[in-house]
Structure formats: structure tokens, C-alpha cells
Design a protein around this nucleic acid. Structure first.
Lengths: 122, 122
DNA sequence: CTTGCCTCTGACGTCGACGTCAGGTTTTAG
DNA sequence: CTAAAACCTGACGTCGACGTCAGAGGCAAG
């Protein structure tokens, strides 16, 4: 599969895929002419990368987590496990914060709705 | 209260407060010499602004929501209510996505932990 | 064999939420 | 009264995840 096909299957841009490789998040096999070729599992990998991005995790941090996905060896597991616990906890805290914000928005909407009702009475 | 005091009470920088005013998220009363002065409720307002920022909402969108906080009138409520519903739904979807990412991380950690146990056996 | 699409490598542009610096005024503490 | 600290208005710098453009080469179809 060439880069355009991978882009189509994942929904991310060609530029983004090259950027991921540049950041060490993705590897590719090059044809003699230098064109990138990918296997089907790269599709899932990009989906996972996107998940982590939308979770607010930076390229650098993702690069520290992903080796643990591919080859869970002794070297990477010590530091990476800690890293994952950290990011997991950060995510948990962030989710809680978002829920509080959502609740605040809900209360705000409720107040506004009440106000409109009192207007409708008149 | 002057801008430095407000910054201290909210934990955001003086620069950020000026930026919020520039974006129309915050107003201030000016002293004859031009210095900004604030009331105590501005502290809560900044806290709310921060909540919305960390929820991934942009200045422009926040500016469209905040009038609804201050003065729920007829003019702003029609468009702003829709805007709030939209952002609330976006938030709900985002929270769900983050929870899926968190679950994925948990599974990953579980796999890695299992792997380390099989290592420990040998 | 050529035409048109895909791909390559730089390299500069963008956008949002500020940080930071310059150069000047104002307020406060001693 | 003076010096330090806080404040003011521009205006340029930053950082991350790409978008976009230039210029050149690669590949399948007619």
C-alpha cells in the first residue's frame, strides 16, 4: 500500500503521515525509487495515534509509548509503564474536568431556559 | 482590585487577562490613568473561561457563550442556546472518545503487565 | 511515449493562546 | 522625594501539528 492509499483508509492527510514518520511514530518500507509502502496493520496504528493526539498527548510522549505497543521488552517496559500510568491518570483527571465543565454548561442552559419561560409568561 | 491581584487570585498571567479582554471575554473599569480595575466576580468569570479553554473551546466561541452568562436576554438567547447545545454535545462526544482512549491505554498496560509476569517466571 | 496522477524532499506559512521585550507612565514603600 | 514595583501599549517570538507550494522524479494507461 502506498501513502495515498493509507491516507484514504485512515482519513488523515498524506502530509500528516509523513509527519508521523518524521516524529518516529511510524515506519515505512521504501521501494527502490524511494516511495513509502505500508502494511495493513499500519491502519490501526494510525487510528491509535489519532486517539492519543485527540487525548492531548504530544508527539514526543506518543513516541515514548508506542514502542511498548510493538515489542514489550524489558528495556522499554520499566520506563514506559510508568509513562503510561502517568498519562492514564492525566486522562482520568482531564475527563473529570470535562464532565465538570459539561455540568456547568448544563446548569447555564437550564438557567437560560428558565429565563425564557418567565419571558413567555408575559 | 488591579490586574496583578486578579492574576494572583486566579493563577493566570497578567498577559492572559489582557488577552481575554482583547478577545472580548472580560471587561474592566479603567482608572483615570488608564489602569484596569476589577471586581470580585471577575475571579469566577476567569475560572469559567479557563474551564472552557481546557474543554477545547476557542476564544471566539467562548465570546459567543459568555453574553448568555451575564445577561440572558431575548436577543442572545436564541442563537446562544443553540451554540451551547452544540458545544455541550461536542463535549459529550469528546468525553466518550477520551474514555475509549483511556480504556485502550488500560488494555495496553494490562498486556504489558502480563508480559512482564511471563518474564518473571523464567 | 507521453500524459496525467502520485510521490519525493525541503522549506516556508498558519493558527491560537499566550510569553517576552521595549520604552514609557503610575503607584507605592521608605 | 526617590527608588522600586506595578502598570500601560505595541509588537515580535513560540510551539505543535500540520497545510501548502516549488521543483523534480516515478508509474500505469492509452
Amino acid at each position: 500500500m502506498r501513502i495515498g492509499d493509507l491516507a484514504a483508509k485512515t482519513g488523515v492527510s498524506v502530509r500528516a503521515i509523513r509527519y508521523y514518520e518524521e516524529q518516529g511514530l511510524l515506519t515505512s518500507v521504501r521501494s527502490p525509487s524511494g516511495q513509502r509502502h505500508y502494511t495493513d496493520d499500519q491502519v490501526e496504528r494510525i487510528a491509535f495515534i489519532q486517539r492519543l493526539y485527540t487525548a492531548g498527548i504530544s508527539s514526543r510522549t506518543i513516541a515514548e509509548l508506542l514502542p511498548c505497543v510493538e515489542s514489550p521488552s524489558e528495556e522499554n517496559s520499566d520506563a514506559a509503564m510508568e509513562r503510561m500510568r502517568l498519562e492514564r491518570d492525566r486522562l482520568t483527571e482531564h475527563i473529570a474536568e470535562l464532565q465538570r465543565t459539561r455540568d456547568a454548561l448544563d446548569r447555564l442552559m437550564s438557567v437560560a431556559a428558565d429565563f425564557r419561560e418567565t419571558l413567555a409568561v408575559h
